[in-house]
Amino acid sequence: MPFILADKVAPYAWFPEGASSFAPQVDYLFTGILWICILFFVPIVIAMVYFMWAYRERPGYRGSPEALHNTPLEITWTVIPTAIVVWIFWEGAVGYLDMARIPKGTVDVNVTAKKWVWSFKYENGGENSFEKIGTVDYPKLVLPVDQDIKLIMRSEDVLHSFFIPAFRAKRDVVPGRYNYMWFHTTKTGIYDLFCTEYCGDNHSNMNAKVEVVSEEEYKKALEKAVQEPEDPLERGKLLYKRLGCSTCHYAGDEGANGPGPSYNGSWGKSVPLESGESVQFDENYVRESILNPPAKKRKGYGAASPMNSYAGRIKDEQIDALITFMKSLENAPAKTGK
Protein backbone atom coordinates (compact mmCIF):
# COMPACT_ATOMS: atom_id res chain seq x y z
CA MET A 1 0.00 0.00 0.00
CA PRO A 2 2.63 2.61 0.76
CA PHE A 3 4.01 1.80 -2.64
CA ILE A 4 0.73 2.66 -4.29
CA LEU A 5 -0.35 5.57 -2.18
CA ALA A 6 2.93 7.33 -1.69
CA ASP A 7 4.99 8.94 -4.32
CA LYS A 8 8.61 9.68 -5.09
CA VAL A 9 7.94 13.36 -5.50
CA ALA A 10 5.58 14.22 -2.70
CA PRO A 11 4.18 12.22 0.18
CA TYR A 12 0.59 12.59 -0.91
CA ALA A 13 -2.05 9.95 -1.13
CA TRP A 14 -4.95 10.14 -3.57
CA PHE A 15 -4.37 13.69 -4.69
CA PRO A 16 -1.42 15.90 -5.37
CA GLU A 17 -0.93 18.61 -2.77
CA GLY A 18 -3.72 21.14 -3.12
CA ALA A 19 -2.77 24.68 -4.01
CA SER A 20 -6.05 26.40 -4.72
CA SER A 21 -9.14 27.20 -2.71
CA PHE A 22 -11.00 24.43 -4.58
CA ALA A 23 -8.68 21.74 -3.30
CA PRO A 24 -10.05 21.35 0.25
CA GLN A 25 -13.59 21.27 -1.07
CA VAL A 26 -12.85 18.67 -3.74
CA ASP A 27 -10.73 16.54 -1.44
CA TYR A 28 -13.42 16.63 1.23
CA LEU A 29 -16.08 15.53 -1.25
CA PHE A 30 -13.85 12.78 -2.60
CA THR A 31 -13.08 11.48 0.86
CA GLY A 32 -16.76 11.54 1.71
CA ILE A 33 -17.70 9.60 -1.41
CA LEU A 34 -14.81 7.23 -0.88
CA TRP A 35 -16.12 6.34 2.57
CA ILE A 36 -19.63 5.90 1.23
CA CYS A 37 -18.26 3.59 -1.43
CA ILE A 38 -16.33 1.59 1.14
CA LEU A 39 -19.43 1.36 3.30
CA PHE A 40 -21.29 -0.15 0.39
CA PHE A 41 -18.56 -2.19 -1.18
CA VAL A 42 -17.16 -3.95 1.86
CA PRO A 43 -20.51 -5.32 3.12
CA ILE A 44 -21.42 -6.38 -0.41
CA VAL A 45 -18.21 -8.35 -0.81
CA ILE A 46 -18.41 -9.79 2.69
CA ALA A 47 -21.97 -10.90 2.06
CA MET A 48 -21.03 -12.35 -1.28
CA VAL A 49 -18.12 -14.35 0.07
CA TYR A 50 -20.07 -15.44 3.12
CA PHE A 51 -23.06 -16.64 1.06
CA MET A 52 -20.70 -18.36 -1.32
CA TRP A 53 -19.24 -20.29 1.56
CA ALA A 54 -22.24 -20.82 3.81
CA TYR A 55 -24.61 -21.95 1.07
CA ARG A 56 -22.13 -23.83 -1.07
CA GLU A 57 -23.34 -27.00 -2.67
CA ARG A 58 -22.21 -29.90 -0.54
CA PRO A 59 -23.39 -33.35 0.43
CA GLY A 60 -26.10 -33.22 2.99
CA TYR A 61 -27.02 -29.59 2.40
CA ARG A 62 -29.93 -28.45 0.37
CA GLY A 63 -30.91 -24.81 0.13
CA SER A 64 -34.34 -23.52 -0.63
CA PRO A 65 -35.31 -23.29 -4.28
CA GLU A 66 -38.03 -20.75 -3.59
CA ALA A 67 -37.57 -17.20 -4.71
CA LEU A 68 -37.49 -14.80 -1.83
CA HIS A 69 -39.29 -11.57 -1.80
CA ASN A 70 -39.09 -8.90 0.83
CA THR A 71 -40.73 -5.61 0.05
CA PRO A 72 -39.55 -3.60 3.09
CA LEU A 73 -35.98 -4.69 2.36
CA GLU A 74 -36.28 -3.71 -1.28
CA ILE A 75 -37.69 -0.33 -0.38
CA THR A 76 -34.90 0.22 2.10
CA TRP A 77 -32.17 -0.50 -0.35
CA THR A 78 -33.80 1.81 -2.84
CA VAL A 79 -34.41 4.72 -0.51
CA ILE A 80 -31.06 4.81 1.28
CA PRO A 81 -28.94 4.96 -1.88
CA THR A 82 -31.30 7.58 -3.26
CA ALA A 83 -30.80 9.78 -0.23
CA ILE A 84 -27.07 9.33 -0.48
CA VAL A 85 -26.83 10.25 -4.15
CA VAL A 86 -28.95 13.32 -3.52
CA TRP A 87 -26.36 14.44 -1.02
CA ILE A 88 -23.52 13.72 -3.43
CA PHE A 89 -25.26 15.62 -6.19
CA TRP A 90 -25.89 18.57 -3.92
CA GLU A 91 -22.31 18.81 -2.73
CA GLY A 92 -20.98 18.40 -6.26
CA ALA A 93 -23.31 21.02 -7.71
CA VAL A 94 -22.52 23.55 -4.99
CA GLY A 95 -18.82 23.04 -5.56
CA TYR A 96 -19.32 23.36 -9.29
CA LEU A 97 -21.22 26.61 -8.98
CA ASP A 98 -18.34 27.94 -6.97
CA MET A 99 -16.00 27.00 -9.80
CA ALA A 100 -18.30 28.41 -12.47
CA ARG A 101 -19.11 31.77 -10.88
CA ILE A 102 -16.20 34.03 -11.50
CA PRO A 103 -15.73 36.67 -8.80
CA LYS A 104 -15.00 40.32 -9.49
CA GLY A 105 -11.56 41.87 -9.23
CA THR A 106 -9.60 39.00 -10.64
CA VAL A 107 -6.12 38.88 -12.10
CA ASP A 108 -6.80 38.07 -15.74
CA VAL A 109 -4.67 35.92 -17.96
CA ASN A 110 -5.35 35.19 -21.59
CA VAL A 111 -4.65 31.60 -22.46
CA THR A 112 -4.22 30.48 -26.04
CA ALA A 113 -3.96 26.82 -26.84
CA LYS A 114 -2.64 25.53 -30.10
CA LYS A 115 -1.01 22.35 -31.23
CA TRP A 116 1.01 21.74 -29.04
CA VAL A 117 1.90 24.72 -26.94
CA TRP A 118 0.20 26.83 -24.33
CA SER A 119 0.73 30.53 -24.44
CA PHE A 120 -0.20 32.98 -21.74
CA LYS A 121 -0.61 36.68 -22.00
CA TYR A 122 -0.63 38.80 -18.86
CA GLU A 123 -2.71 41.87 -18.20
CA ASN A 124 0.14 44.19 -19.14
CA GLY A 125 0.50 42.55 -22.55
CA GLY A 126 3.60 40.59 -21.64
CA GLU A 127 3.82 36.99 -22.69
CA ASN A 128 5.03 33.91 -20.93
CA SER A 129 8.64 32.81 -20.73
CA PHE A 130 10.02 29.29 -20.87
CA GLU A 131 11.81 27.22 -18.32
CA LYS A 132 13.89 24.17 -18.87
CA ILE A 133 13.21 21.35 -16.45
CA GLY A 134 15.22 18.26 -17.21
CA THR A 135 15.40 18.14 -20.97
CA VAL A 136 12.06 19.75 -21.64
CA ASP A 137 11.40 23.43 -22.18
CA TYR A 138 8.07 24.16 -20.53
CA PRO A 139 6.05 27.30 -21.09
CA LYS A 140 5.79 28.91 -17.69
CA LEU A 141 2.76 30.71 -16.33
CA VAL A 142 3.58 32.93 -13.36
CA LEU A 143 0.73 33.72 -10.99
CA PRO A 144 0.52 35.71 -7.74
CA VAL A 145 -0.31 33.84 -4.57
CA ASP A 146 -3.54 34.45 -2.65
CA GLN A 147 -5.34 36.01 -5.59
CA ASP A 148 -8.39 35.20 -7.66
CA ILE A 149 -7.12 34.30 -11.10
CA LYS A 150 -9.33 34.35 -14.14
CA LEU A 151 -8.35 32.65 -17.35
CA ILE A 152 -9.79 33.67 -20.69
CA MET A 153 -9.15 30.71 -22.92
CA ARG A 154 -9.20 30.34 -26.66
CA SER A 155 -8.01 27.68 -29.04
CA GLU A 156 -6.50 28.29 -32.43
CA ASP A 157 -7.05 24.85 -33.88
CA VAL A 158 -8.64 21.87 -32.15
CA LEU A 159 -10.04 21.06 -28.74
CA HIS A 160 -7.65 21.26 -25.84
CA SER A 161 -8.26 21.14 -22.13
CA PHE A 162 -6.57 23.13 -19.41
CA PHE A 163 -5.89 21.08 -16.30
CA ILE A 164 -3.89 21.84 -13.20
CA PRO A 165 -4.21 18.88 -10.84
CA ALA A 166 -2.93 20.80 -7.85
CA PHE A 167 -5.70 23.36 -8.33
CA ARG A 168 -8.37 20.69 -8.99
CA ALA A 169 -9.39 22.81 -11.94
CA LYS A 170 -10.08 21.90 -15.51
CA ARG A 171 -11.87 23.39 -18.47
CA ASP A 172 -11.85 22.53 -22.15
CA VAL A 173 -10.51 25.08 -24.57
CA VAL A 174 -12.89 25.08 -27.50
CA PRO A 175 -12.15 26.64 -30.87
CA GLY A 176 -14.68 29.23 -31.91
CA ARG A 177 -15.51 30.43 -28.43
CA TYR A 178 -14.10 31.77 -25.20
CA ASN A 179 -14.16 29.50 -22.21
CA TYR A 180 -13.49 30.98 -18.83
CA MET A 181 -12.25 29.52 -15.60
CA TRP A 182 -11.01 30.84 -12.33
CA PHE A 183 -9.32 29.71 -9.13
CA HIS A 184 -7.85 31.20 -6.02
CA THR A 185 -4.19 30.41 -5.48
CA THR A 186 -3.25 29.54 -1.93
CA LYS A 187 0.30 28.29 -2.00
CA THR A 188 3.53 29.22 -3.73
CA GLY A 189 5.29 26.56 -5.71
CA ILE A 190 5.60 25.06 -9.17
CA TYR A 191 2.72 22.97 -10.45
CA ASP A 192 2.03 20.83 -13.50
CA LEU A 193 -0.33 21.90 -16.21
CA PHE A 194 -1.64 19.29 -18.65
CA CYS A 195 -3.66 19.29 -21.82
CA THR A 196 -6.34 16.66 -21.19
CA GLU A 197 -8.30 16.74 -24.41
CA TYR A 198 -6.71 14.66 -27.12
CA CYS A 199 -5.24 17.01 -29.72
CA GLY A 200 -2.99 14.97 -31.98
CA ASP A 201 0.55 13.73 -32.31
CA ASN A 202 2.19 15.56 -29.45
CA HIS A 203 -0.81 15.75 -27.16
CA SER A 204 1.19 14.24 -24.34
CA ASN A 205 3.91 16.87 -24.72
CA MET A 206 1.50 19.75 -24.42
CA ASN A 207 2.40 20.46 -20.83
CA ALA A 208 3.37 23.59 -19.01
CA LYS A 209 4.38 24.68 -15.55
CA VAL A 210 2.55 27.08 -13.33
CA GLU A 211 4.62 28.98 -10.83
CA VAL A 212 2.77 30.64 -8.02
CA VAL A 213 4.88 33.38 -6.46
CA SER A 214 4.57 36.22 -4.00
CA GLU A 215 3.04 39.53 -5.05
CA GLU A 216 6.42 41.27 -5.47
CA GLU A 217 7.90 38.51 -7.52
CA TYR A 218 4.82 38.48 -9.65
CA LYS A 219 5.22 42.18 -10.39
CA LYS A 220 8.82 41.60 -11.37
CA ALA A 221 7.82 38.73 -13.60
CA LEU A 222 5.23 40.93 -15.29
CA GLU A 223 7.79 43.61 -15.99
CA LYS A 224 10.15 41.06 -17.38
CA ALA A 225 7.40 39.60 -19.51
CA VAL A 226 6.76 42.82 -21.47
CA GLN A 227 10.40 43.23 -22.36
CA GLU A 228 11.00 41.22 -25.44
CA PRO A 229 14.69 40.73 -26.30
CA GLU A 230 16.10 43.45 -28.55
CA ASP A 231 18.58 41.15 -30.22
CA PRO A 232 16.83 39.60 -33.25
CA LEU A 233 18.52 36.25 -32.70
CA GLU A 234 17.42 36.01 -29.06
CA ARG A 235 14.00 37.17 -30.07
CA GLY A 236 13.85 34.58 -32.81
CA LYS A 237 14.81 31.86 -30.33
CA LEU A 238 12.05 32.92 -27.97
CA LEU A 239 9.47 33.17 -30.73
CA TYR A 240 10.48 29.76 -31.97
CA LYS A 241 9.21 28.36 -28.70
CA ARG A 242 6.42 30.81 -28.01
CA LEU A 243 4.73 30.45 -31.36
CA GLY A 244 4.89 26.72 -31.03
CA CYS A 245 7.39 26.12 -33.87
CA SER A 246 9.38 24.00 -31.44
CA THR A 247 6.54 21.50 -31.09
CA CYS A 248 7.05 20.34 -34.66
CA HIS A 249 10.41 21.56 -35.92
CA TYR A 250 13.71 20.58 -34.45
CA ALA A 251 16.25 23.43 -34.28
CA GLY A 252 19.74 23.65 -32.79
CA ASP A 253 19.48 20.93 -30.20
CA GLU A 254 15.98 21.72 -29.12
CA GLY A 255 12.48 21.00 -30.13
CA ALA A 256 10.18 18.06 -30.15
CA ASN A 257 10.03 14.94 -32.19
CA GLY A 258 7.32 16.61 -34.17
CA PRO A 259 5.97 16.08 -37.62
CA GLY A 260 7.74 18.99 -39.32
CA PRO A 261 11.20 19.19 -40.96
CA SER A 262 14.17 20.35 -38.91
CA TYR A 263 15.63 23.85 -39.41
CA ASN A 264 19.16 22.62 -38.96
CA GLY A 265 21.57 23.08 -41.82
CA SER A 266 18.87 24.11 -44.26
CA TRP A 267 19.40 27.81 -44.68
CA GLY A 268 20.58 28.87 -48.11
CA LYS A 269 20.45 25.36 -49.48
CA SER A 270 18.19 24.02 -52.12
CA VAL A 271 15.58 21.75 -50.55
CA PRO A 272 13.45 19.18 -52.37
CA LEU A 273 9.70 19.61 -52.39
CA GLU A 274 6.83 17.16 -52.35
CA SER A 275 5.93 18.29 -55.87
CA GLY A 276 9.27 17.04 -57.15
CA GLU A 277 10.71 20.48 -57.65
CA SER A 278 13.13 22.08 -55.29
CA VAL A 279 13.33 25.50 -53.78
CA GLN A 280 15.94 27.75 -52.29
CA PHE A 281 15.57 27.86 -48.48
CA ASP A 282 15.64 31.64 -48.19
CA GLU A 283 13.67 34.57 -46.79
CA ASN A 284 10.94 34.25 -49.37
CA TYR A 285 10.48 30.54 -48.82
CA VAL A 286 10.35 30.89 -45.04
CA ARG A 287 7.91 33.75 -45.23
CA GLU A 288 5.65 31.90 -47.60
CA SER A 289 5.80 28.75 -45.52
CA ILE A 290 4.73 30.64 -42.41
CA LEU A 291 1.85 32.42 -44.08
CA ASN A 292 0.74 29.67 -46.43
CA PRO A 293 2.20 26.38 -45.23
CA PRO A 294 0.62 24.02 -47.77
CA ALA A 295 2.00 25.94 -50.76
CA LYS A 296 5.44 24.29 -50.86
CA LYS A 297 5.62 21.17 -48.78
CA ARG A 298 9.02 19.63 -48.15
CA LYS A 299 9.64 16.22 -49.59
CA GLY A 300 8.64 13.47 -47.22
CA TYR A 301 6.27 15.67 -45.23
CA GLY A 302 3.22 15.43 -47.46
CA ALA A 303 1.38 13.15 -45.07
CA ALA A 304 2.48 14.88 -41.87
CA SER A 305 0.01 16.74 -39.68
CA PRO A 306 -0.74 19.99 -41.47
CA MET A 307 0.67 23.26 -40.22
CA ASN A 308 -1.87 26.01 -39.74
CA SER A 309 -1.27 29.34 -41.37
CA TYR A 310 0.17 32.09 -39.23
CA ALA A 311 -1.31 34.75 -41.47
CA GLY A 312 -2.93 37.39 -39.31
CA ARG A 313 -1.26 36.04 -36.20
CA ILE A 314 2.33 37.07 -36.79
CA LYS A 315 3.98 40.45 -37.33
CA ASP A 316 6.54 41.13 -40.02
CA GLU A 317 9.32 41.83 -37.55
CA GLN A 318 8.54 38.53 -35.86
CA ILE A 319 9.04 36.74 -39.15
CA ASP A 320 12.32 38.59 -39.52
CA ALA A 321 13.44 37.50 -36.08
CA LEU A 322 12.60 33.90 -36.90
CA ILE A 323 14.57 34.19 -40.13
CA THR A 324 17.56 35.46 -38.17
CA PHE A 325 17.27 32.45 -35.91
CA MET A 326 17.10 30.06 -38.84
CA LYS A 327 20.09 31.69 -40.45
CA SER A 328 22.09 31.04 -37.31
CA LEU A 329 21.43 27.32 -37.77
CA GLU A 330 22.97 27.31 -41.24
CA ASN A 331 25.76 25.01 -40.16
CA ALA A 332 24.09 23.17 -37.32
CA PRO A 333 24.33 19.39 -37.63
CA ALA A 334 21.45 18.13 -39.70
CA LYS A 335 19.81 15.82 -37.24
CA THR A 336 16.27 15.48 -36.09
CA GLY A 337 15.02 15.49 -32.58
CA LYS A 338 13.69 12.69 -30.52
Partner: peptide
Protein backbone atom coordinates in the same frame (compact mmCIF):
# COMPACT_ATOMS: atom_id res chain seq x y z
CA UNK B 1 -19.14 6.53 -11.13
CA UNK B 2 -20.36 8.49 -8.12
CA UNK B 3 -17.33 10.80 -7.83
CA UNK B 4 -17.44 11.29 -11.59
CA UNK B 5 -21.09 12.32 -11.43
CA UNK B 6 -20.38 14.81 -8.65
CA UNK B 7 -19.71 17.97 -10.60
CA UNK B 8 -16.99 19.55 -8.52
CA UNK B 9 -15.04 16.31 -8.48
CA UNK B 10 -15.53 15.67 -12.16
CA UNK B 11 -13.78 18.95 -12.87
CA UNK B 12 -10.70 17.29 -11.49
CA UNK B 13 -11.20 13.75 -12.72
CA UNK B 14 -12.55 14.28 -16.21
CA UNK B 15 -10.32 12.88 -18.96
CA UNK B 16 -7.90 11.37 -16.47
Amino acid sequence: GLPLGALALDMHMHDT
